[in-house]
Design a protein around this nucleic acid. Sequence first.
DNA 1: AAAAAACTTCGGGTAAACCCCCAAAAAAAA
DNA 2: TTTTTTTTGGGGGTTTACCCGAAGTTTTTT
Lengths: 215, 215
Amino acid sequence: MINILIADDHTMFVDGMESILTGESDLVVVGRSYDGPSVIEFLKDHEVDLVLLDVNLPGMNGIEVCKEISLNYANVKVLAISMFNEESFVSEILNNGAKGYILKNTGREELLKAIRTVAKNDSYFSKDVTETIMKSLMNQRKASSKAVSSIPKLSRREKEVLRLIAQEFTTQEIADNLYISLKTVESHRSSLLSKLNARNSVGLVRIALENNLLD
Amino acid sequence: MINILIADDHTMFVDGMESILTGESDLVVVGRSYDGPSVIEFLKDHEVDLVLLDVNLPGMNGIEVCKEISLNYANVKVLAISMFNEESFVSEILNNGAKGYILKNTGREELLKAIRTVAKNDSYFSKDVTETIMKSLMNQRKASSKAVSSIPKLSRREKEVLRLIAQEFTTQEIADNLYISLKTVESHRSSLLSKLNARNSVGLVRIALENNLLD
DNA sequence: AAAAAACTTCGGGTAAACCCCCAAAAAAAA
DNA sequence: TTTTTTTTGGGGGTTTACCCGAAGTTTTTT
């Protein structure tokens, strides 16, 4: 018998899941929570095997809740559920102790399978989520081998100029703003083009935005 | 007796709503659709009073579906349901004939009330949604004077030109690439600057990247 | 401390971007 | 069908961006 706590603030969802689970003889829903803190509260004085946890929970984020559970209630398994197949959500909650991650468009059969798999302390991910994780792993290699290293350091002045270029100021306006000559600013522009390997200021700004050079 | 079609691609959700509705003697769920086109298909040969329509539907957008319904099936009422309390969603679907808009965290009682209200051809909005609409009405003054976030639609050609600008091509190169005159490309550039409210191509690209206009 | 490298500062000249005016054919929307 | 938007393009002009070169200053390396 698997004791389940459903933690989701969307009433219809909770109803949907409960209607699926009540038909199964080995599963029993022992509680519902509509926000993060009440999940922790519930675990204090109830026997729970598995938490069906919405990643986007009000009050206390699903990720925080998951962290708390895996720290203080190690025997409680967490199956994360979310609307979004977002790489950031998936990796973050997995790093905080969730054993599985499924999407809310998951069907009845898959939901049951996921619950029973996670209850046995195995991992379960829906097909879409697996794809997302794979993609992010693929991109990590590309990113680390190509993009990162190829950006030289920009000097203080160059960064200032770049920031103003990105704000659509003209060279003359930048010169006035920095109290230097038009020609000096043009020189900085030229260095930027060369350093960032761009053909024009559009490329400058695109590269700057892609690499967070404006912070 | 109110005949209801549920249009949502999230299985659990549909289960949840159905479990709520089956308990009511005056409501009957006559069908389920998991994408836009099948809603239209279903209406062709079934008697439906009300569609519970997810705004974010795959295949054919919920807004498109709603438009289609109000054009060809005027006697079918639409109650829009969404995860998001977004002003853009709310106003757009209301402009396309939806009679009500509720969020997915709506409880059992409110869902039933909303259905019965809309079925009587009255309007229904959840409290949060009403607030959103009010806020947007308040902000309309500001928005019209400043034109902050509302981005006008770009034509096919404009998007092509914008994409090439973002790739650092010159006007002449863009003209060669698209087999049109230099002057034509300049004309498109000018429209882009005006539409996106930018001073130069740097602004164009920054706005394009910030608003995912290049996909 | 001396040499090398990088940074900041400018001038002159050319190519590109941007601006104003305009207008007709084609396509899409009302 | 009528109206609006889009796509196409021209003439002519101003402003801006970019290229080549160079000198003095600061920082880093040897």
